[in-house]
Design a binder for these strands. Structure first.
Lengths: 225, 225
DNA sequence: TAAATGCGATAGTGATACTATCGCCCCTCT
DNA sequence: AGAGGGGCGATAGTATCACTATCGCATTTA
């Protein structure tokens, strides 16, 4: 299964100038890009610092990504593609729609707890980036053209898969798509609050899986078991 | 009532070097800061452009805010303070807890539709800033010290007020604080998706007030009327 | 062997977030 | 009326950084 994960996660969209997955330097850019952005935060992260960490020149990095922001988009898209794959695996072969949905919500809201099987991707660092930086991928004035070019495709696909799980339980829910997007985006926000603004979280809400399972199930037109 | 609004909204915390509310230049910095950030987005916005728009020098702006990021924090905090005041007004004198909660959710999720009564604050522009930029106020490595200095105090107070309304209906809800924060933060995210990434929203979810009323009420342990 | 590809190195440009400093003007206090 | 101070505008300067242009070397490919 780990091999399958490794083979299948990829950034389909043209967010790069040259596909970093195809060369050793490209993979090292991704690997150390993750570590540096996690360590410094996206604002303090610079291409120059990344080049230094790699022992190369800035120009070499610019061969793969046209700018710093596109590197972030690449990492974030990779992350959502990984979550999509994880969701597909973790809901496979489950026939009961309700059970599928519960597993799906738990999958989508679960933090990454291990470095994972990808040699050049530290999943825990990437998870922290997703929590703290992923909104910056779209919160800017280029969001519309970025959307047109498919920069957020993995996030959209993930959201639609969760929507399908919701509709599998309640075909008449009035807001399945918005609810799915809220769960995925909201779990990141609450993770951040939990870590940095705990007064926004109260007590007993540390397990967001249960929070969102509770939230979604209770809005559905269906009896509880 | 408008006068009261005008008198009462203020940034209590020490996010500024010199209180911009106390001088004419300070108010013009706030006024044109809102307009420019709304127009350019926070990344493309610069202190130099703001100074040009004001017909003054950069150094004059730096007398009020130590850096560009603090100006954003000021505007965002002002915004949440306004929303808090609005929430207090719009739930005043309502005795039925359920009705209070519904009004509170509608208040907190309602977009700003008019420029409003504050001469140096265009509420519609500020609302757009809150949707597109407010997360950047805390999504950075200074969030912990910023929290300690109370930079997010208005947001926290607003969230706690909504939490109190939730608990007024269901005293035993397991996650009242997290749910309140999710509603407030989530309505911004969904507004942004609605505008820029509509495939994340589906159809029929344009009125977020109803979406969140539906969502919150159905999680509460209480009978619907 | 020739060509292409990938990489590293140097140099440079324009923007921009600040900082330091100075002198003017107006208001207030005496 | 004169002195002092606060607020303001203006100039100058620094360090960082995103990005571009160009070249030459080495390794792989044809």
């Amino acid at each position: 299964m780990e091999k399958l994960f490794q083979l299948d996660v990829q950034v389909r969209e043209r967010v790069f100038t040259k596909d970093p997955a195809t060369t050793e330097l490209g993979r090292r850019i991704v690997q150390h890009g993750i570590l540096l952005i996690d360590e410094l935060g996206f604002e303090r992260f610079t291409i120059g610092k990344l080049a230094s960490a790699l022992g190369t020149a800035e120009t070499s990095v610019y061969r793969y990504f046209p700018n710093k922001h596109r590197l972030l988009i690449y990492l974030v898209d990779w992350y959502w593609a990984w979550r999509e794959l994880k969701l597909v695996f973790e809901t496979a072969n489950i026939d009961d729609p309700r059970e599928r949905l519960v597993r799906g919500i738990r999958s989508v809201t679960a933090p990454a707890k291990e470095k994972g099987p990808y040699p050049h991707v530290d999943l825990r660092a990437l998870y922290r980036i997703a929590v703290a930086e992923s909104a910056k991928a779209w919160l800017n004035k280029d969001v519309d053209s970025g959307d047109r070019e498919g920069h957020f495709g993995s996030f959209v696909r993930l959201s639609h898969r969760l929507r399908d799980l919701i509709q599998g339980v309640d075909r008449k829910h009035p807001y399945p798509t918005a609810l799915a997007s809220l769960v995925i985006e909201g779990t990141g926000s609450l993770s951040f609050f939990n870590e940095h603004l705990p007064s926004l979280m109260g007590k007993g809400a540390r397990d967001q899986g249960e929070l969102f399972v509770h939230l979604v199930l209770s809005t559905l037109n269906t009896k509880r078991p």
